[in-house]
Design a protein around this nucleic acid. Sequence first.
RNA 1: GCCCCCAUCGUCCAGCGGCCUAGGACGCCUGCCUUUCACGCAGGUAACACGGGUUCGAAUCCCGUUGGGGGUGCCA
Length: 544
Amino acid sequence: MLPADLLDRLLPDTAPTQQWEEANPPRDLPAGAEVTRFAPSPTGFLHIGGVYTAMVAKELAERSGGSYFVRIEDTDQARAIEGSDEHFARAFPHFGIDPTEGPDAPWGPYRQSERSEIYRSFVRALLESGHAYPDFVTKDELAAITERQQAAKVDLGYWGEWAVWRDAEPERVTAALDEGLPFTIRFRAPDAPGRIAFDDAIRGRIEADDNRNDVVLLKSSAEPLPLPTYHLAHAVDDHLMRVTLVLRGDEWISSVPLHLQLFDALGFEPVRYAHVAPLMKGEGKSRRKLSKRKDPEASVDFWMAEGYPVGAVRHYLRGLANSRLADLPFEEAAAEPLRLEEFGASGPLVDIPKLDDISADYVAQMPATDIRDRLLAWADEHDPELAGLLRATGDDLLAIIDVDRVDTDRVRKDIVKWSVFRERYGFFFPELFALVDDPADERFLGVPPEVVAAFTTDFVAGYDPDTASPGWFDQVRGLAERHGFALDRKAYKADPDAFHGTMREASNIVRVTLTGSGQSPSLDQIAGVLGADEVRRRVGAPAG
RNA sequence: GCCCCCAUCGUCCAGCGGCCUAGGACGCCUGCCUUUCACGCAGGUAACACGGGUUCGAAUCCCGUUGGGGGUGCCA
């Protein structure tokens, strides 16, 4: 161990750790209450996998009567990206993963770059107890060591005799300091490493080799603000913030042996871990972790821009976590607790078609007023033109949304996400609708242009807007018969050449002229909303 | 190289030694319903990675192989 005056030169003016222990008292919580946290790095944008883990963390805390907070892990100043804070500020409330605690709670600050004083205290303690030492090795020397280790086919890393500063004499340290050489503080890994076992809340018992690397605890003293590495910050923060359950990605499993050593060296009670399998992306036959670079759906921006209702996303994600919940009705599933033991140990693939299906179901059971509110909120952000039109429509918007949704047990499921509203329901707004005036348009499914023209001319001439629903279609039926369409499939199948098609093609002429699409809500209801004049104008367009 | 994790239909899972000729959901295909598209309903398609054990009996337990993922950083 280095003498105290040398330690003072290494880390001057450090407060005793006792001070931090006292300032961060255990919370007064009921037995069994979990304290969890979400610890994102401000490097670019929030990953949907982060939302997934955070949702679980928050839910477990809330269900157990505990506490959940967000801690920004910005110890890598070089990788921090401008704008991350703003992005987080939008995304957290959107997905309901904003903290239930902080920023003024006693366990803060919740940003690691503001906690350097705290880390220094604990590093000093580690130095004093001989669990850490200063290391003046340069990058070049490190590279040379790695090279020799590769040649010698031994484990890579700073360990044993490769750790050249591990047992440096005080005189040598003093000399290096006198020279003004920058240094890091490294952990002194316990001697005689063996095997270790620990229990993961998701995976059960895991065995691994003990860590024997002298990992860096405190980054270079040449930095303006020497910050800790993840490992030290994790131990200190999760201890001081009195976290009871650490939820994190399974890429951390191999660091647990080190973390346990750190907790021990620091004299902390170890935390419970739950390592969550990452969300995956299918690629051909294989799969890989969802990547922010390659996969748009990895970023929460995608989910927000597409306009998936958060309730649907939540249901989908919770179903991935605990498949027991996947097939339950929304409310029932939401009422059921998430259980760590039921998490899958392998990473699930994010399946957009499945999400779409869930989302369509979710929207279908929303009241029209809710759909309107969410849609408006989405459009304000992502489609201002549409937002303006929706607002101008007033209460008629509710009628539009409810077409084919009320007084029926077969609810339409056209809206899978807010971004499809424009293409599915845009025809209700004259500003978004383009007349279909070419009788040869391919959307008429191959019906001869002259037939389309004659049919639509006839339709306009005799259009009766007052007919109620059952009768409204009689007009189409009558028209179909007169213009050479088969009224039932059997007749058509018996002699396809004798007809221009069936009622399907005939109705399609009306549908396409009215909506521009082959898929739309019930024609009679649309006609009712649009009004007789507009119906005549649209259907008559290809008549010439 | 070494260490760790994982492995059931195309996808998400269920299955935790006999109830499995492997079940559900999404997708896909076919019919039905609808005087129209969609919705809905009914049916169909399709999997225990491979090889050894253990056991009266294995998708389920053990070992190995293969494959995939991760770690081995002054990135988290």
